[in-house]
């Protein structure tokens, strides 16, 4: 599980090394990936729900399989969002905003939404 929804709030789920404090998304197993850390205790952790846009784009043409495109196709918007506390930039689809609504540096908040064929996925959305 890479995210969880609780009380209508979506959280990314990553891992955190109990020794050095490094975060990982998606969650990792098999030991800390900081090369100077021997930590083996990787704890599941929820990541910050808000971050700032590092960059963004869209997919004007339907991405190929295994992506399942909606019909009619609506361009998918993508944002890479920097999480300050974790020092991560996390990519996600953007919900209900287009590239015209986005700017590098603006704040977004995590939400979730369905893929065209049903499964729920994490998405970045307007900050409440």
């Amino acid at each position: 599980m890479w995210f969880t929804v609780e009380d209508d709030l979506t959280y990314l789920v990553g891992s955190r090394c109990a020794d050095c404090g490094a975060y990982f998304f998606p969650p990792v197993a098999g030991g800390c990936r900081n090369p100077r850390c021997d930590g083996q205790d990787l704890q599941e952790t929820r990541l910050s729900r808000r971050g700032t846009v590092w960059s963004y784009t869209n997919a004007c043409y339907p991405p190929p399989a295994p992506f399942v495109a909606a019909e009619p196709y609506v361009p998918v918007t993508l944002a890479a969002v920097a999480l300050a506390e974790e020092g991560l930039v996390v990519l996600g689809q953007v919900k209900d905003l287009t590239v015209d609504d986005l700017e590098v540096g603006m704040e977004l908040e995590l939400t979730s939404g369905p893929l065209a064929d049903g499964p729920l996925v994490w998405m970045w959305g307007a900050a409440s």
Binding site: T57, N58, P63, F67, A69, A80, L91, V104
Partner: peptide, 29 residues
């Protein structure tokens, strides 16, 4: 099906040009 190259398409529709575009937009900003 569980490798990141598969999942980035499946979950995000993130093609190679999408990453190039993120870098390009970053330059603009």
């Amino acid at each position: 099906e569980n490798d990141p190259d598969h999942l980035r398409f499946r979950l995000l529709g993130a093609t190679n040009p999408a990453y190039f575009a993120l870098y390009a937009r970053r330059r603009m900003a």
